[in-house]
Design a protein around this nucleic acid. Structure first.
Lengths: 342, 342
DNA sequence: AGACAAGTTGGAAGCGCTTCCAATTCGAGT
DNA sequence: ACTCGAATTGGAAGCGCTTCCAACTTGTCT
């Protein structure tokens, strides 16, 4: 029964390569070679080893492997917060691509917490490289990462910095296109709800709107920055804008603001799009199901995650050396909140 | 300049504890004690060590730490797929709680891939414990985990199994409450779109609906399982149900189905809720913004993630030994898709 | 000034694995 | 049978850290 006992004991924690070696009557080096398929091992020996490994339910310890290999085979990703409808898609694309590249994904949400910086540092110690979404990390930490030569890619950063790879979604062209579409409907007075903000994405949209209207000889849009992203702030801002002297069009910085505006418009008895047109940005799921369905701009969130994973892999494997600056195309989605379309 | 060179070189990869020790003129044991605050170190020595560590930008290697400590300080979470509006919230709650407990979170999406099983095994080697959402893992892998005594909690599993902790959201009571509300509106003929399915959650809702109607002496609901969860299948099913002889109420297995039904109803010229009432389940963001706003049942996704993290921690630290069976309360959200409410 | 307990410190043994290197065994050709 | 290169194999040195244990310093109390 002592052998039985030994078995029981060894099951509490995964068996080690030593136990497999002993059971198969070989050295650990041979076990390693047999199991990972490097070096040559006589078929009979390999068979014995595989059998022993199976019996022991042996799974190599990632820690041992990583320590010896000097790599984690893991990627990190840092989100400013896990709320919002976007990050899920981004993460999906990222995880998928990472899995394909044989890497695990470690997620950190850098919600306002003071400890966020430490979490990011900890993360850095667990991965071969990381992507940072929306410039969550205060530049200090990012700078540290860069200085350490830790492979890093910035996804949709609030501010552009030199050095690391950067992946963004196109804003200017599609914002211009959206504005032109609205002008074509005959709309003339524009209000931009939700910006400018100091963040790159939204400010690029704002700037493109200003430009396009100017070129068309229309009055400049009225900017209405938000005092916060909470539900209350957004509704209050929408109410303030719509309650008196509403413009022809309310261009919103993103869908959630636009959806709130749709709500408020209904409350105030304003018909969309007859009395006022509304547009969003992102094309979240609710945009399609709202009433009226929301005209918006679709961002390739999933693809952004995927690109980030691939860019990071290139950085880690050293396939590419120069920094990457990728701008992914977006798509204007015309629905009925901007006008009736026959 | 040779010292400069050495510095440059050491920056390519994070410095080790040995370099810090050498620079501070002490042994590595002392460095370890000083940095992690265990054991006593003379203030002057500590200061020298901290300084050296700062200069070298020293971050202890997670691998070394974990290997020596015999723990990963990381939790895993497996999702069936990263799509859908739920998992984001679950992950948020999970990550938040895990961070509070000083653990990193590693995510795996077990999308149909054949390699999913391997990914889960790999994950198991990187974490101290893991939660599995929706019984993604085929029972074989879960069985393996249990056999290995790997701390595991099942979140909203499709099928209940013995052994591991299980956390679910309440279905029966709230489905009954929803049915009663619908009966109170005078609705008499019910169709259940999207089930039963063989999955526990949806089948519990179905069963509660059947029970409640039976108790009220109403006709039994008509079950309409879905042939798939793709957009096309859902719309086709909704169309088939609504095109001929629509019931008083269409109770849907979850919001996405209900939103599709709302769409189809509009296309067919059916007024909701006048001609037909529709309900969903989950309370996704779009449910609030749809027209009419969707009556549904809110699940505490975030809290589920949080509970899972805490349950897992208890398992890992051995704070609790008996298995956990937690059912989190849900909330019926009455909006206008089930009837006009004054 | 002397003796002890308490406070500090460094050495070394792991933790589980990969891989270099040297030693051993195998097979085929003569 | 005998030789020699090729195929196999095991030993051992790390990878970076924690922590036990023994050795060494302090400081204090007599």
């Amino acid at each position: 029964m002592s052998e039985q006992d030994a078995n029981d004991k060894s099951e509490h924690t995964s068996a080690t390569i030593y136990e497999v070696a002993r059971r198969a009557g070989v050295g650990i080096a041979t076990v390693s070679r047999a199991l990972r398929g490097t070096g040559s091992v006589r078929p009979a020996t390999r068979e014995r080893i595989l059998e022993a490994a199976r019996e022991l339910n042996f799974i190599p310890s990632r820690l041992g492997v990583s320590l010896a290999e000097g790599r984690h085979a893991a990627n990190g990703i840092v989100f400013p917060s896990l709320t919002g409808p976007y990050f899920g898609e981004v993460l999906l694309g990222y995880e998928e691509a990472a899995a394909e590249l044989k890497r695990s994904v470690i997620v950190v949400a850098a919600d306002g917490l003071d400890s966020a910086q430490d979490h990011i540092r900890d993360l850095a110690g667990r991965v071969d490289g990381m992507v940072i979404y929306g410039s969550t990390a205060e530049s200090e930490v990012v700078a540290e990462l860069i200085a350490e030569r830790k492979p890093t890619v910035l996804l949709s950063p609030r501010v552009l910095v030199d050095g690391p790879d950067v992946i963004t979604a196109e804003n200017t062209r599609s914002a211009g296109e959206l504005a032109e579409h609205l002008l074509a409907h005959g709309h003339r007075t524009f209000t931009f709800l939700g910006g400018p903000t100091g963040g790159r994405d939204i400010d690029e949209r704002w700037a493109a709107l200003v430009d396009t209207l100017a070129k068309a000889g229309a009055a400049a849009p009225r900017p209405v920055p938000l005092s916060g992203y909470g539900r209350a702030e957004v509704y209050a801002a929408a109410r303030a804008v719509l309650a008196q002297d509403p413009p022809d069009v309310l261009v919103c910085s993103h869908d959630e603001v636009a959806l709130a505006a749709l709500r408020v418009a209904r409350e105030l008895g304003l018909r969309v799009p007859d009395d006022i047109a509304v547009t969003g940005w992102d094309d979240v799921m609710a945009a399609e199901h709202s009433w009226p369905p929301l005209t918006t701009v679709r961002q390739p969130m999933r693809r952004m995650g995927e690109m980030a994973a691939r860019a990071l892999d290139e950085l880690i494997t050293g396939t590419r050396t120069g920094p990457l600056r990728q701008v992914l195309p977006t798509e204007v989605i015309i629905r009925e909140s901007c006008a009736h379309h026959p």
